[in-house]
Design a protein around this nucleic acid. Structure first.
Length: 490
RNA sequence: CGGGGCGUAGCGCAGUCCGGUUAGCGCACCUGGUUUGGGACCAGGGGGUCGCAGGUUCGAAUCCUGCCGCCCCGACCA
């Protein structure tokens, strides 16, 4: 019986949900809005995490860990911050249960907390409250810290990986002596995210800055990377914030500069989450299942034997182990699937569903000819090649697949990025084609809001590389000097 | 919070309108055998508080009342 996915064309949203569950990446948990990340999904996340962690360390950051719980009062110290997060905070009010007469448990009313604790939706407040005790002098700066953690945002509507009530992420929190340095840091990390997305996830992104209304609660500027999904909707894949002195002022974090003058510290924060999993899935996958870029695939090459009897299996197994060892020596993650309870056809379909980039099949014919069959997941092409030299061929093929996935999604994005001159055209493109729509905007939140109300499209970002260009706002006709990117977004 | 849908075996579902033997099907699972170049086949087998609580009835998965939970679409958001 074939597991058949709903096609993307038929129902993109359904396709995504089925894919996540059938490829064994995650499932809904018993708790509303929360997911269980299954081993195969978690393995992909671990790969992402490891690469990012190294990139952070290579740029001078260290890991640390701060509490899950934040005293309620901290949340209100930065006005915009509380406004942004208050509506989605989980609150801990008690610290103990007790048995009730029916054999169950109830919250012990005597165990009420003096001050409620917020389950962190992000850690700026608790971290800045801590930084106060770390920083006295310019000599204590900069502080370049990253934390891997889970956070909770009580979203009304959730989707596996894209928006869950609890999610895994990393959050960098840095403290600097000067404004320029803090800005430089937030821009630097944006570029770290962008190169991760492009070089590892094979996902092209637009680097930009958010408009005021899309800005992080408490930031002076929010930089972001925006990716385009196959259904023409944009996905914010990572953000990096220049926080100015907002949190330093809210938590009274000052340092003595070289002249002995006390000054508030400048800050940045930046994060990516398990949402990147959603981005990865939606960027490359097809109606047959997941398509993973080789650099992040838990299994890069799978080998499937085809045999009629035990002698054949033994002979194949020997050859496959040899090839497997050669591939491992080249640093390739390879699996030899000798499971006798599943037929080759089943395995082919299964590994396609799971997005394994390269499949090698080897049967009696190959034993005779000294050959193997190599199939690539991205194009579904199959070819026979000599066993001799196969390891290098496969290593090379993995690179080609990685490159092809990037080029393919880059071409899709180019195809789905449209410059428009007026509002009629804007609406038409949005409706008929979707994708990024590049248009002039008068720079006001009112216009942005009206366009959002009328079309559901928001300003994804003002691209960092937007060229100076005289134009008129598509909505109000007011002068504008650069184009911004609009899209319907996740 | 508005609209829709669903809750029956590990998963996916039928049965509910119109109450009536022992609650059924597909996949998965177990045993044996034949198979293996694109999701094999045959035979046998195990597995159920029908979401929860009340009620009506000789009898409830099915009717009534209340509750709970989840999913999808929208508003909100990374």
């Amino acid at each position: 019986m074939a597991k058949k996915l709903t096609s993307r064309e038929e129902d993109y949203s359904k396709w995504y949900n089925e894919l996540v569950m059938q490829a064994d990446l995650a499932q809904h948990s018993d708790v509303k809005g929360c997911m269980v990340i299954k081993p195969y999904g978690y393995a992909i996340w671990e790969n992402m995490r490891d690469v990012l962690d190294k990139m952070f360390k290579d740029t001078g950051h260290q890991n640390a860990y701060f509490p899950l719980f934040i005293p309620k009062s901290y949340m209100s110290k930065e006005a915009k911050h509380v406004e942004g997060f208050a509506k989605e905070c989980a609150v801990v009010t008690h610290y103990r249960l007790k048995n009730d007469e029916n054999g169950g448990v109830v919250v012990d009313p005597d165990a009420k907390l003096e001050e409620e604790l917020i389950v962190r939706p992000t850690s700026e407040t608790i971290i800045w409250n801590t930084y106060r005790t770390w920083i006295q002098s310019y000599r204590d700066l900069p502080i370049l810290i990253n934390q891997w953690a889970n956070v909770v945002r009580w979203e009304m509507r959730t989707r596996l990986f894209l928006r869950t009530a609890e999610f895994l992420w990393q959050e960098g929190h840095t403290a600097h002596a000067t404004k320029a340095e803090a800005i430089e840091e937030s821009e630097k990390m944006l570029h770290v995210y962008a190169s991760f997305a492009e070089q590892w996830m094979a996902m092209p992104v637009v680097r930009g800055v958010k408009s005021e209304s899309e800005r992080f609660a408490g930031a002076e500027d929010t930089y972001c990377i925006e990716a385009l999904m196959q259904d023409g909707k944009a996905l914010q894949a990572g953000t990096s914030h220049f926080l100015g002195q907002n949190f330093a002022k809210a938590f009274d974090v000052k340092f003595a500069d070289k002249t002995g003058k006390m000054e508030h510290v400048w800050a940045s924060s930046w994060g990516v989450s398990t949402r990147l999993m959603g981005a990865l899935i939606m960027t490359h996958s097809d109606d047959e299942g997941l398509v993973l870029p080789p650099k992040l695939a838990p299994i890069q090459v799978v080998m499937v034997p085809i045999y009629k009897n035990e002698e054949q299996l033994n002979a194949l197994s020997e050859k496959m182990d040899e090839l497997s060892a050669k591939l491992s020596d080249l640093g390739i993650r390879v699996k030899v699937d000798l499971d006798d309870t599943k037929k080759p056809g089943w395995k082919f379909a299964e590994y396609e569903l799971k997005g394994v980039p390269v499949r090698i099949a080897m049967g009696p014919r190959d034993l005779e000819n000294g050959s193997i069959e190599v199939a690539r997941r991205d194009t579904k092409e199959k070819q026979g090649i000599p066993l001799e030299g196969a390891a290098n061929f496969v290593a090379d093929l993995l690179n080609k697949i990685q490159e092809n996935l990037f080029l393919r999604s880059a071409a899709f994005r180019t195809e789905h990025t449209t410059e428009v001159q007026d509002y009629a055209e804007f609406k038409e493109v949005l409706e008929a084609k979707g994708g990024f729509v590049s248009a002039h905007w008068d720079g006001t939140a009112e216009t942005e809001e009206k366009i959002k109300q009328e079309t559901k499209a928001t300003i994804r970002c003002i691209p960092l590389d937007a060229k100076e260009e005289e134009g008129k706002c598509i909505y109000t006709g007011a002068p504008s000097n650069k184009r911004v990117l609009f899209a319907k977004a996740y």
